[in-house]
């Protein structure tokens, strides 16, 4: 982990003015599509039908946003996404912390073998097992349920790998001190080591949350009933190719509306998120 966050760098090396100017220009290009989306969302659908260049002209309207309040299912989708992402994140954090602690600190039969097998799991892409997984979930009737949406992500080996590395990085003297008090492994885990892994939890939590939040294929084939749509699937279902009857303005407003909560959370926690993501990298 990066304890040394000092940013003293001789001026000539990196982060000079030219590069920064280019980066600013690039950020404008990056944001142009978003500005376009927002522009579309505050135009009347009928006016857009005649040509989208009307975005650059008055009048603007909030009617699309009002329509969302009345008729969009985005609230429900958002709630589903939230439940699934939070549930999956909690599950991963618990499972990975327990396993990571054991792999890093405890001895038990076949520890190395099991760890290698789990590492091997890192190489199994979700997409490669999704067909078989879909069949399995049929047998147990797990489709169209929160549990069914949360479970697959919890098998990811990434979290276990990450937590094992983090536990290994904690100086051994710390738990050895606790051992003098005759603490049990569980107690050492819970009282002594777990609090020290909070930054790691944040890193893993953010990665897992984003992954669950953005997941597309699994909810597409598992959450097939409207009530269970996640935000990703719900938004996809409303941008039908054929008979695109909800105007561009409404679709844009729905997209803006659906992104706002995550973006707000992101802005509030940005500092932590940045540290967490970088923390994961440095290890």
């Amino acid at each position: 982990m990066s304890k040394d966050q000092t940013t003293y760098r001789p001026e000539a090396l990196t982060g000079n003015r030219t590069l920064l100017t280019i980066a600013i220009a690039f950020s404008v290009v990056m944001m142009a599509p978003v500005a376009w989306l927002v522009g579309l969302s505050i135009k009347d659908n009928k006016e857009l039908m005649l040509g989208t260049d009307s975005v650059f002209r008055v009048p603007y309207t909030l009617v699309n946003y009002v329509n969302i309040l009345y008729s969009s299912q985005a609230f429900g989708w958002f709630f589903n996404s939230l439940v699934v992402a939070i549930g999956q994140t909690a599950g991963v954090l618990i499972l990975a912390s327990l396993a990571g602690y054991a792999f890093a600190r405890l001895e038990f039969p076949f520890r190395r073998t099991i760890f290698v097998i789990v590492l091997f799991g890192l190489a199994v892409p979700e997409q490669a097992v999704i067909i078989a997984r879909h069949q399995m979930f049929n047998w147990f009737g797990l489709h169209n349920s929160y549990i069914g949406l949360m479970l697959p992500g919890m098998s990811s080996a990434f979290g276990v790998f990450l937590m094992t590395q983090f536990f290994k990085a904690i100086p051994k003297e710390i738990d050895e001190a606790a051992l003098l008090d005759n603490a049990s492994p569980l107690r050492i885990f819970w009282k002594v080591l777990l609090p020290l892994t909070l930054p790691a939890q944040a890193t893993l939590g953010i990665f897992t949350f984003l992954h669950a939040w953005n997941d597309y294929w699994w909810p597409l084939i598992s959450a097939t009933r409207k009530e269970m749509f996640t935000l990703t699937i719900g938004i996809a279902s409303s941008q039908t190719n054929f008979a695109q009857s909800e105007g561009l303005g409404f679709l844009s407003a729905q997209a803006v509306f659906a992104s706002l909560p995550v973006l707000i959370v992101y802005v509030i926690f940005q500092r932590h998120i940045v540290t967490a993501v970088s923390g994961g990298a440095v290890k």
Binding site: N138, I221, T240
Partner: peptide, 20 residues
Amino acid sequence: VTTVEWPGYDQLNAQMASGA
């Protein structure tokens, strides 16, 4: 009512396979 992207048969297949 659930509205699906036209023609929606891939989604229907997934639903039927999962008994939903």
